[in-house]
Amino acid sequence: MGKAIFKIIIGLLVGAGLWVGTMALEFPPVFRWMFFAYAILGTVVFLVLDAPSMKPMNGAKAFGAVLVFYVILCVVYIAGASLWPQYDPEDEKGKIEKLLKAKREASEQGKADELIARVKALDEQAKALAERIKALGGDLAPPVQGTGGPGAPASTAAAGDMLKIGEDQWQLQECYNCHKLKGEGGKKRGPELDNIGSLMSMDDIKQKILDPKSWMTEGFEKEFEKGKMPDKYKDLMEDKDVVALAVWLSTFKNTSVNTPKSIKKK
């Protein structure tokens, strides 16, 4: 018992030392608690190592003990997972809706196109029948009314706020995961872009988004060779969205930020 108390005291001292040390190093409180928790975990481990032996069981007692053990494991794992910060799916739902809108419409458009093609074929058949009836001398054939195309006038989407669309695309495509902009995001995976507008034109930026191998940024030669920037946006984004993103990025001309130069490769 004395040994156990000694270990607990040591564990608490180590925990307190970690707490004070991390506070001095300006770790946020959540990290201090985390390190303290590790000290407690270590204490528990060392207590368990020298714990007295467990008496053997069998039969119903062993069965009951195993069941209780499983219940404890289930509760601990579910509770443990629930204690971590939880991602809110609502944040993503709106994004996904926007991202897939074009594809969903495209897939519905595909169905509509198929219907139109069928209507056109029927129209042709009806015209041919009318011609045959006319040739047979039957003027009684009703005039064939053209079924026409989809009937809907070509949609002319309002120009909208291009810069707003560009900023939306930055968020939707999660460009911030690799590029820092306005002091936010980026983990040095890609260049900081606050001065990109001074270095590249809108067309250059668009080309880079659509074909990442078209421009190589200084200091990111390894990333360029490995093709780190995904070559997928030409398939995932609509042309108008790429243009909007490029226009929005080209407005960033903060010369105080050292955005590296890019060299044209294609």
């Binding site: 579910i78 629930s82 991602y87 799916p89 993503e92 996904i96 594809k103």
Partner: peptide, 15 residues
């Protein structure tokens, strides 16, 4: 395209 194509929470997954 279904409404379920989002990332679930860790807690939900753990259950």
């Amino acid at each position: 395209f279904t409404a379920e194509s989002f990332t679930p929470t860790l807690s939900y997954s753990a259950w």
